[in-house]
Nucleic acid binder design. Structure first.
Lengths: 99, 99
DNA sequence: CTGAATGTTCGTCATTCTACGAAATACGAA
DNA sequence: TTCGTATTTCGTAGAATGACGAACATTCAG
């Protein structure tokens, strides 16, 4: 009986990170935040060609993937990179891409 | 009038590459091929928990993203990494992830 | 209490994705 | 021409995605 369980947990995790990055809007947000620039949802709404509810959905995707986190600074929410998971993503992609 | 055209072509390109990587099966295939191991569709069918038609669809996705290419070795087809685009993906992710 | 500001959630629609099985295609050997 | 092999394509079903606008929730200033 051949073994069909060859996909590793690491590959699954990378697929999750890659999926979260698989949309230009989310790439834009990640690159902005990775530059060390936290930002507010409202500001992003001014910079991106989508309505705020769609942006909210994208930010939710990134949060659920663990790549960003939001800190409440009433009345706004400040988004920034989740450093722990960002490091993990860096390591995984570095290894995968042989950088 | 605020400028909403802030998403760069580079970010769009990275999103396309990331999207192609956004499934565990495709991550498995890419990692296998990135190890320098070309392979045949039939062999992959033995190693993965999906039917050959679904695998064919995934390979098509990777080809359309430009990450792999297939060479005819009748009666089989040999898949391997598209080195040119692989290098580009490496460079893009290296810059994006600040590696 | 009211209204404004900020952001989220919901419902909807259209599209895409991912699985499958059946059918089709291409090729070479016999 | 037929058969076997390898792979792709097609049609289908259900789930997921990504866009929108409307409604909702929370907070705060007046």
């Amino acid at each position: 009986m051949s073994n069909k369980n060859n996909i590793t947990e690491e590959q699954k995790k990378m697929a999750r990170y890659a999926k979260a990055m698989g949309h230009p809007v989310r790439m834009y947000v990640l690159e902005l935040l990775a530059k060390g620039n936290c930002c507010y949802s409202g500001d992003l709404t001014e910079e991106l060609p989508i309505v705020k509810s769609t942006l909210s959905q994208h930010l939710k995707e990134l949060k659920e993937a663990g790549l960003i986190q939001g800190e409440i600074e009433l009345p706004k929410i400040k988004y920034c990179i989740n450093q722990e998971n960002w490091k993990e993503a860096q390591q995984l992609f570095q290894k995968f891409l042989k950088l």
